[in-house]
Computed example of a mutant assay.
Amino acid sequence: MQNKKNKLVEIIEFTDPVCTWCWGSEPALRKLETRYGNQIKISFIMGGLVKDITAFYDHFNNIGGDPERSNSNIARHWVEASERHGMPVKSEGFRLFSKEHPSTYPQNIAYKAALMQDEVLANKFLRRIREASAAEAKQTNTTEVLVELASEIGLDASRFLNDFTSEGAQIAFEQDLATTAKYGAHGFPSFLIRYGEKEMMVRGYQRYEGFKAIISHLSEGAIREQLFMVNEGAILSFIATFGSVAPVEIQTAFDLSDQELESILISLDEKDQITRREAGNGYFIGPKVSVMACDSRTGVCQA
């Protein structure tokens, strides 16, 4: 019998890279990673939200049919969702679908292609697709944009392109679709939480407290939050670990009030330790790093 101390809690998200409530789940997932560390493993199964927008219809949000009308309604829906979950969304210039690119399946297949290269980078890539789709209004179902994003986060662009267009990535995605159907995960996000032989399925957007309760229940208290510090150093480490974070992600991970969050960000700004990048109705924070660059006018290269 396996010792409980050697077990991990697996949190498997059934998702699509452009699902707005999956985007809104990022703060809770990052809090889980911060509070539980290597006691948990978060992974993703691609569920394929929209096979073809022209044959899709969401009656509640009036999304589907004509791609351009759908884009307008999706943008409005995402902004409304952003007001609840707090993650940045850009509606200006939003154009997720077109007649030539009517599906979110390319983003799903792209993640599976990245996974063939490196799991850590694949998960960073998934996050980058979410950012680009939601907060930068990029049309992420085009090959050109996907290759650009893959290269940005350190994937080998040539290998990614080969894997993305391979039969292997398509088959891997089809296997994910079969697993999604097996568990009846028709809405995204849905989460399968597993500890040893025990597992529990929860559907829809979940807050951190819900995950915490399920982890405690499944592990019978064996998996617990780790001790953590709430100070500028810990927050700077959090930013450096993830590279690009929305303010709500810091606030959620460290249980900060609006005033506490703003005070810490102002202090880190004044010390020139962070950067801010505007994104739609919000912004992202990153660690301040030296930029190695060469000026073509002067021929001078410096950090």
Rank of each mutant, 00 (worst) to 15 (best):
residue 217 H to L: 15
residue 214 I to P: 05
residue 229 M to Y: 12
residue 206 Q to S: 09
residue 244 S to E: 01
residue 234 A to T: 10
residue 220 E to S: 15
residue 223 I to L: 09
residue 239 I to R: 00
residue 204 G to V: 03
residue 238 F to E: 08
residue 237 S to T: 10
residue 231 N to R: 10
residue 225 E to H: 08
residue 232 E to I: 13
residue 220 E to I: 10
residue 248 V to P: 03
residue 237 S to D: 10
residue 246 A to P: 02
residue 233 G to F: 03
residue 207 R to F: 10
residue 233 G to Y: 06
residue 243 G to W: 02
residue 219 S to T: 12
residue 207 R to E: 10
residue 205 Y to D: 06
residue 218 L to I: 04
residue 234 A to Q: 07
residue 236 L to D: 06
residue 229 M to R: 15
residue 203 R to W: 07
residue 222 A to L: 12
residue 219 S to A: 07
residue 218 L to E: 05
residue 234 A to R: 07
residue 205 Y to I: 04
residue 208 Y to S: 09
residue 241 T to P: 01
residue 230 V to I: 15
residue 208 Y to P: 04
residue 205 Y to Q: 09
residue 247 P to Q: 03
residue 207 R to P: 05
residue 224 R to E: 15
residue 206 Q to C: 03
residue 212 K to T: 04
residue 211 F to N: 05
residue 227 L to H: 13
residue 244 S to D: 00
residue 211 F to I: 05
residue 234 A to N: 05
residue 232 E to V: 11
residue 225 E to M: 12
residue 225 E to Q: 14
residue 208 Y to L: 10
residue 216 S to I: 05
residue 244 S to A: 00
residue 244 S to H: 01
residue 230 V to Y: 02
residue 242 F to C: 00
residue 231 N to P: 11
residue 222 A to Q: 14
residue 239 I to T: 03
residue 247 P to D: 01
residue 244 S to R: 01
residue 214 I to Y: 05
residue 206 Q to R: 09
residue 227 L to K: 14
residue 239 I to P: 01
residue 204 G to H: 04
residue 245 V to P: 00
residue 225 E to Y: 06
residue 214 I to Q: 07
residue 209 E to Y: 07
residue 214 I to N: 07
residue 203 R to P: 03
residue 220 E to W: 06
residue 227 L to V: 14
residue 204 G to T: 04
residue 245 V to W: 00
residue 246 A to M: 01
residue 244 S to P: 00
residue 247 P to H: 02
residue 235 I to R: 08
residue 225 E to S: 10
residue 231 N to Q: 11
residue 225 E to A: 12
residue 241 T to K: 03
residue 213 A to C: 07
residue 231 N to A: 10
residue 210 G to A: 05
residue 213 A to N: 14
residue 211 F to R: 05
residue 231 N to L: 06
residue 220 E to Q: 15
residue 229 M to I: 14
residue 240 A to N: 04
residue 233 G to Q: 09
residue 232 E to G: 14
residue 248 V to S: 06
residue 210 G to T: 08
residue 226 Q to D: 14
residue 233 G to P: 02
residue 231 N to Y: 11
residue 219 S to L: 07
residue 230 V to E: 02
residue 219 S to C: 08
residue 236 L to W: 05
residue 213 A to M: 13
residue 222 A to P: 11
